Simulated assay, not measured.
Amino acid sequence: MTKVLLSIHVLAAIIAIGPVTVAASMFPAAARRALAATDAGSGSAVVHTLHRVCRVYAVVGIVVPVFGLATASSLGVLGDAWLIVSMVLTAAAAAVLGLLVIPRQSAILTDLGTPAGSTTEAIAETRRRALARLAMHTGIFNVLWAVVTVLMIVRPGSTTGV
């Protein structure tokens, strides 16, 4: 049973978390291009799609920690430090995604309706700053997942010889 749980956990991580990290990473640049376009609709479909991928796969991604906990329980490693750190980092990544990345993407999407040519320099600067913060939060999300992935592979203190 442990192998089945681990397989589902790993597949869910690849299938759910991978698209979120890619779409979230692509969003700031795509939004920057869409906001700079003189045509209000230019590029907005791409940005909307990237945001939708982030939202949908974030919900699907809940499967990853659920099956991760089930796997850890079946292996008897729930109390191991590397797993506790991984769980804390996973919760932090979920918080960054749910509280910072996705809401800021939504805010930028509402701003897409205003063409770049009709904005003042102050609005343009506010947009640039919002996109920079979004890119930073997306980077934090991605780094958290990278650290969790490394912890899952290396498992400090493991007796598997890795």
Results as ranks from 00 to 15, higher is better:
Met152Val: 03
Val66Ala: 09
Phe67Ala: 01
Phe27Ala: 06
Met152Pro: 00
Thr38Gln: 14
Ala72Pro: 00
Leu83Arg: 05
Leu151Pro: 10
Asp111Leu: 09
Ala24Ser: 03
Ile15Lys: 05
Thr110Phe: 06
Thr110Val: 07
Ile140Trp: 13
Arg155Glu: 13
Thr160Asp: 14
Ala116Pro: 03
Asp39Glu: 03
His51Glu: 13
Ile62Arg: 02
Gly68Gln: 08
Ser7Gly: 03
Asp111Ala: 15
Ser42Tyr: 06
Cys54Gln: 10
Met87Pro: 00
Val162Ile: 07
Ile62Leu: 11
Thr49Lys: 13
Ala45Phe: 14
Phe67Tyr: 07
Val88Ser: 07
Thr49Met: 13
Lys3Arg: 15
Ile15Ala: 02
Ala130Pro: 00
Thr90Ile: 02
Thr114Leu: 07
Leu97Arg: 10
Leu109Phe: 01
Met1Asn: 14
Trp145Cys: 02
Asp39Met: 02
Ile14Thr: 12
Gly61Lys: 07
Ala70Trp: 14
Ala37Asp: 12
Met26Arg: 15
Ser118Pro: 02
Val66Cys: 06
Met152Cys: 10
Ile17Tyr: 05
Ile102Gly: 10
Thr119Ser: 05
Gly157Leu: 13
Ser106Asn: 10
Ile140Phe: 03
Ile15Tyr: 04
Ser73Leu: 10
Leu78Tyr: 14
Leu50Pro: 08
Met26Ser: 06
Pro156His: 09
Ala13Cys: 10
Ala122Trp: 02
Met87Asn: 00
Ala91Met: 05
Ile102Val: 12
Trp145Ser: 08
Ala23Ile: 09
Lys3Leu: 08
Leu151Lys: 07
Ser118Met: 00
Arg129Lys: 15
Ala34Lys: 01
Arg104Asn: 15
Arg155Ile: 02
Leu144His: 09
Gly68Pro: 05
Met1Leu: 03
Val64Gly: 13
Met26His: 07
Met136Gln: 11
Phe67Lys: 01
Ala93Ile: 11
Ala36Cys: 08
Leu11Ala: 12
Ala40Phe: 02
Leu151Trp: 00
Pro19Gln: 14
Val64Gln: 15
Leu151Cys: 07
Leu112Lys: 11
Thr114His: 09
Val85Cys: 14
Leu5Gly: 10
Thr110Ile: 05
Leu100Val: 09
Thr2Lys: 00
Ile102Lys: 07
Met87Lys: 04
Leu89Pro: 05
Val143Ser: 06
Gly79Ala: 06
Met152Ser: 12
Thr119Glu: 10
Ala124Ile: 13
Val101Asp: 13
His137Lys: 03
Val10Ala: 11
Thr21Phe: 02
Thr21Met: 04
His137Ala: 13
Ile140Gly: 09
Ser44Tyr: 09
